[in-house]
Computed example of a mutant assay.
Amino acid sequence: IPVVRDLPEVGQGLQDHLAVSYQFAATEPTLNTQLGGMLGKLMMGAKYLLTRSGPLSVPVNQVGGFVRSSPDNRFPDMQVYFNPASYAMTSSGKAVLDRTPGFQISAQPCRPTSRGRIEIVSPDPRVAPSIQPNSLSTDVDKSAAIQAGKVLQRFAATGSLKSVTSRAKTPDLMALDDDGLLADFKQRASTVYHPTCTCRMGRDDQTSVLDARLRVHGVGGVRVVDASAFPNITSGNTNAPTMMLAMRAADLILEDAS
């Protein structure tokens, strides 16, 4: 591919949020009771179509928020979300709900410091790029992974959750020490689909891809307006910040056009 403008930071600086989840069997009915079987799925599907209500009318993560993993932290550093369902994953990546009641609790560190990269490996657009997340490459992120597990342990130990828990599904969250929490995070944590920063804004063409007006350094008429333009990953979901960026970019484009 002929090089038009050599910008070394294109594709560099990739950041994403990773979350770890733990499941428990429950003593009270959950979404598994309603959606675990085909009859229940049909009934809940019909309820949504007819009344726009029921479990299909709300997100699966029905409880969520931001918490501090330590009272010494000035700002929340963990995003947590719980859902009233438990399931198993097939080899093809399909989630199959348990037939018996269960629930899941999840946590993700808000401010990862590790950075990866995405690079093309062929001029053929049908060839997948190389994506190297480089997750947990810093001590800060390893510590945050442990803290995520500890936050969930504290939630699982509360009276309200213990009162509706019959047993832990494998792996047993409450049986893990710091080393076990880190090893389990490395083994099972997964993306929550917040990839960002691979065309990030910055001061110059050696440390960034875009200027403060989202223009590609040295390339006229080209802007990047999506989450890849973030200098750093946001501390929570990327949807609303991306829409905010797009609204700001629309103003910039109109200003420059006039």
Rank of each mutant, 00 (worst) to 15 (best):
V3A: 12
V3P: 00
L7N: 02
E9S: 04
V10C: 07
G11K: 02
G13S: 06
L18Q: 05
A19G: 08
A25L: 13
A26K: 05
A26C: 06
P29K: 10
T30E: 01
L31A: 12
L31G: 07
N32Q: 06
G36C: 07
L42E: 10
M43F: 11
M44W: 04
A46E: 13
K47W: 03
K47E: 09
Y48P: 03
L49W: 05
L49F: 05
L49E: 12
T51I: 09
S53T: 03
L56A: 05
S57W: 07
V58W: 08
P59G: 08
P59W: 11
V63S: 07
G64W: 08
G64Q: 02
F66A: 00
V67A: 03
D72T: 13
N73A: 15
R74F: 12
R74K: 15
F75I: 10
P76S: 15
P76C: 14
D77S: 07
D77M: 01
Q79F: 10
Q79E: 14
V80L: 01
Y81K: 11
F82C: 14
P84H: 10
Y87S: 13
M89R: 08
M89W: 09
S91V: 12
K94D: 14
A95E: 13
V96I: 02
L97K: 01
D98C: 10
T100A: 14
G102I: 00
G102S: 04
Q104C: 15
Q104N: 15
Q104M: 15
I105L: 12
I105C: 04
S106V: 06
S106R: 03
A107N: 02
Q108T: 15
C110K: 11
T113D: 10
R115Y: 14
G116L: 08
G116E: 04
G116A: 13
S122A: 05
P123H: 12
R126I: 11
P129S: 05
Q132C: 09
N134I: 02
S135Q: 10
T138I: 03
T138W: 01
V140T: 13
K142G: 08
K142T: 05
A144S: 06
I146P: 06
A148S: 01
V151P: 00
Q153G: 03
A157P: 01
A157T: 09
T158H: 05
T158L: 05
S160K: 12
L161M: 07
K162M: 10
S163D: 15
T165D: 03
T165W: 03
T165P: 07
T165S: 13
S166V: 13
S166T: 15
D172G: 04
L173H: 08
L176F: 05
D179R: 11
L181I: 00
L182T: 01
A183P: 03
F185E: 02
K186S: 14
Q187M: 15
R188A: 08
A189N: 13
Y193V: 00
C197A: 07
T198D: 04
T198Y: 01
M201Q: 12
M201R: 07
T207H: 06
A212T: 14
R213A: 14
R213T: 15
V216D: 05
V216F: 02
H217F: 15
G218I: 02
G218M: 11
V219L: 12
V222K: 05
V224P: 00
V225C: 03
S228N: 09
F230E: 02
P231Q: 06
I233K: 01
T234S: 14
T234D: 10
T234Y: 13
A240S: 00
P241V: 06
M243P: 07
A246P: 07
M247F: 12
R248G: 08
L252C: 00
E255M: 07
S258I: 10
